[in-house]
Design a protein around this nucleic acid. Structure first.
Length: 133
DNA sequence: CGACTGACGGTCG
DNA sequence: ACGACCGCCAGTC
């Protein structure tokens, strides 16, 4: 099976993460030249079987492990990270700085008013399921 | 073609 | 700090 370009680039980006460091899914996607494809990165890892791939260095952007607490992958990832000297506490990697909102970082502007919009319940249902599982 | 799903990201209350 | 939501991308059904 020949891996397509995108796949290889993503894998390369993951392998490029230095030992003892971590990166978010979206970050990896960006480094692979695929901004906005964080979910694609996640999908790849979900089907990954290569043991030498440092998948454990990939976390959610907020520094939390993407697996539900207590799950197999959760423990596995925590252990692997700690083995590299990364401090992990309650599924969260320390040393990360969530920082302020982008608005403040970039524009330093106060919260602009936001026109209320309808509630697409299709998206809402998805969000609920997404969170549960 | 449209609904559902997921190792996601970001905003808001 | 947290949970509820919305937005996005891609693959399945």
């Amino acid at each position: 099976m020949v891996q397509d370009d995108v796949t290889r680039r993503i894998l390369a980006a993951i392998r490029a993460i230095p030992r003892g460091e971590v990166a978010g899914y979206g970050e990896v996607a960006r480094r692979a030249g695929l901004p906005g494809r964080a979910r694609l990165v996640a999908r790849l890892l979900s089907g990954n079987d290569d043991p030498r791939l440092p998948w454990h260095r990939v976390l959610r952007s907020d520094g939390r492990i993407a697996f539900p607490e207590g799950s197999r992958g959760y423990r596995e990832q925590s252990q692997r990270l700690r083995a590299e000297g990364v401090r992990v506490e309650n599924g969260r990697v320390l040393g990360r700085r969530p920082a302020a909102t982008l608005d403040e970082q970039i524009w330093g502007a106060p919260a602009p008013e936001r026109a209320p919009s309808a509630k697409p319940e299709a998206a809402r249902r998805r969000a609920a399921r997404d969170k549960r599982s």
